[in-house]
Design a protein around this nucleic acid. Sequence first.
RNA 1: GCCGUCUUAGCUCAGUGGUAGAGCACUCGCUUCACACGCGAUAGGUCACAAGUUCAAAUCUUGUAGACGGCACCA
Length: 947
Amino acid sequence: MELAKAYEPKEAEKHHYKRWEESGFFRPEIIQNADAEPYSIVIPPPNVTGSLHMGHALQHTIMDVLTRRKRMQGFRTLWLPGTDHAGISVQRKVVEQLKKEEQKSPLDIGREEFIARCWKWKEQYGNTITEQMRREGASVDWTRHRFTMDERLSAAVRSVFVTLYEEGNIYRGLRIVNWCPKDKTVLSDLEVKEETKKDGKLTYLKYPVIGTDATITVATTRPETMLGDTAVAVNGSDERYKDLVGKTIALPLTNREIPIIADEYVDAEFGTGAVKITPAHDPNDYLVGERHNLEQLLVMNMDGTMNAAAGAEFEGLDRFRAREKVVEMFDELGLLEKVDDYEITLPVCERCKTIVEPILSEQWFVKMDELRDLGLELSRQNIPQFSPEVPHAKVYQTWLENLKDWTISRQLWWGHQIPAWYDDEGNVYVARTEAEAKEKAGGKELTQDNDVLDTWFSSGMWAFSTFGWTGCADTPVRIAGSSGETEGSRRSDAHADKSVRTPTDLETFLPTDVLVTGRDIIFLWVSRMMMLTKKFVGETAFKDCVITGTVLGKDGKPMSKSRNNGVDPIEMFDKFGVDATRIYLSSIATGADVKWNDLGIETYRNFANKIWNATRFSLMNVGTRASLPAIEDPQAGKDARVPTTLADKWIISRLNRTALDLNRALDKYEFHTAVSLLYHFFWDDFCDWYIELRKDEINAGDAEATTRILGILETALRMLHPFMPYLTEELWQKLPGTSAEMHNAAYKHTVGTQASSLLEEKSGQDARVPTDKTIMLADFPLGDAGLIDEQAEREMLAVIDVIKRVRNIRTEMQISPSIKFDVHIAADAGFQQVFRDNEAQILKLARAEKLVISSELDVPKASAKTVTNDAVVAVPLEGLIDFDKERERLATQINKLAEEKTRLDAQLSNANFVEKAPPEKVDGLRERSAELEHQINTLNNNLEALN
RNA sequence: GCCGUCUUAGCUCAGUGGUAGAGCACUCGCUUCACACGCGAUAGGUCACAAGUUCAAAUCUUGUAGACGGCACCA
């Protein structure tokens, strides 16, 4: 069998995914074992407006690694994909499109038509990311793809809303909210970010006090809001203003009179100690206003212009223009005290960066007390278990403890319209459907609330709405809902006998096993999913939560369009291959930020090529052989052959050790450790040593050696598969002896039998009969501690040491690789045997002519000598040796050993150390010190012998 | 203001009480019959700084400096 000289990722990426998907390999239904333990992950649904970025690539890789490993282990595995309707993002796209193509505004075409356009947009452009996920190799079950505005998911949203409303956990109220004048919608606190403005101004305005000549000075960063002032507040204990409290101010530019009040909120030390109070435009002023029963005067429109209440001179002016004008007019009136430069941080809209206006507005809110307590209760039990735990567990809990009510209405059209209807008198009826609402209203004509729900309201239900929960009669309910006095579970009794029907997805896959996401949405999404799932299904949404780091641009800043420092994953796929990109992303420490660096990915491109070529080598002799014994799995009980050579014992030991460590690392979500283990096992142990050690036999066509290497390789490919699915499938397919018989027991007999009918029944699609073998369903190596052979590893190390020391002599003595020389080794009887048994290997890898093994060295003076932990090695170099160089070489080596010995001896001469350190530690050092002394003496003798 | 993270070889990053690691780059040598996306051999670090705890600190504690993140406030 001939393979190309270099791995061509695109070739492998072309056909495997389609086959996997069409064969139903991604579906949990393919499993034949009824008792298989489920393993499930729901994807953080990307925005339909989105296209794949590095953050997705990273998270998807992690999820796919987890999913593929569990699938190979025979779990009933589901990774559920989906997309989010992304309210504002889609709406903005469609508004832009409408303006550009038809010069129309949403109002021109009306709500219904606008929403139709949004759907159209979604159909047309919303698949970008799902197609890109196929390229990634993401093994998601596409037949279970969900969209947050799917009919059933929307029904679920309405159920949750209605229930929370009926419980009093959702209310409508007039509050100061974050308003984005550009998007013309309210934003939750989490959607508001901060921007520091160095050129801010603090303006000091003088207000005349009626009945006196005095003025009172207030400072403000938003002078235009003075038009809505309804009081000036001072601290009651502030001597300066004591006499003014209770007096009245003639508010300039208006003909209003406002009181001077005393309130503890005011800090006498700060500014002038007097604060203008604008209850309709500032959250703190709002609270002061409530305490003092002040009028809430709204002076701004929702588009950021001033309204009629601001006065005729200001009406219609943009808020920033009005600001200038207020200052100008105060100046003209002689009431402008001063304007100071002032660095200020302003709230801005997360998406459009427009300065957010705090404004009084009637909105819907979720009262978070009960939900918060549910979340906190879990959090105290370490649910979810964050990886990495620091700092997320603590930050998450602290955030929950300080949780405020959640503004859930949004002034958009695209989204879940709030299921609340109003009659002519303004009475509200909350119901799942308009019909229900009408019934409640006694048949009155109703109009539905114009607003839609925050996108995160529906995302927060993702863990259960995706599994079919609607909260309605048809919800596939859970059997033993622990909290479950929800509508859904109450209606469940009729179907509650699990034994007589197929368990629903909700029963099977919730709680999900792990959530993988970025830290930016821990509050927005993770927390809400935890709380809502607990409340409505009585379950933990997920047990573990892996928080990935951020892939930064080359400049160390987060990738963004404005910085133009983004790296497109698709470009990386094209340049280095999907598998190289995946395993590189996996090699980043969990949770750590990393600066993008093409060199990192190149490392793994090279690694992929190394794997390709190791396979190429392993297969080279296969084609010429008529028959080969079946390859066997070199794990306990799976390989009947007893390894005879040291190299075999050693590589089997290393393989099993690697598999054990690998699984341990993956269980702890330490993907970078896993990658490092695989990289070094494959490259160092397998390629650099094992292949080289057995090369001659393999080239000579030795059946045992050829089969053995294929067995090791095959197992390694399975370990690598979750990280590098395309490459490993491509190569595994080419290995002789691989077959569907090697699939995990849970998938045996899947091929061509039950699975196809099952698939057909479930998906309704033309499920092709999967007659082919696939590494995807092969057993994931777990490793066996019983096959770790400490002795073989020690002996192999001795052999490797000798080879390395001889190579070192060759290089240091500048002896051409083409020149062969004799090698003398002195060692104890045990190691003599080891070296004798591996003579051919040592000869080959040290490029030696002859090996002389004895208990005492007997070599001419003109020899280069060296020591290992287990042997003394000499290379007679008559005519080749440069004595000065050899002295230098020996001196360097002695120095190194002596340094170590000095350190150790210093420690050993410390009575405190000997007394207090663990005895095995002390003994270890003593042994090492003795060994070093021996080695140094040997080298010193050699050095003297040269003189 | 509060909470937290980071600072390790030229670069990008692992490690986290017991002799400092990787990849890449660098130096030297190899057209060795799987791979130059390769092979072999070197070199390179008082683990930001200071003090403390400990027999032992890069690792724990405190402080300092620099980089950064979250939350709150911002008259």
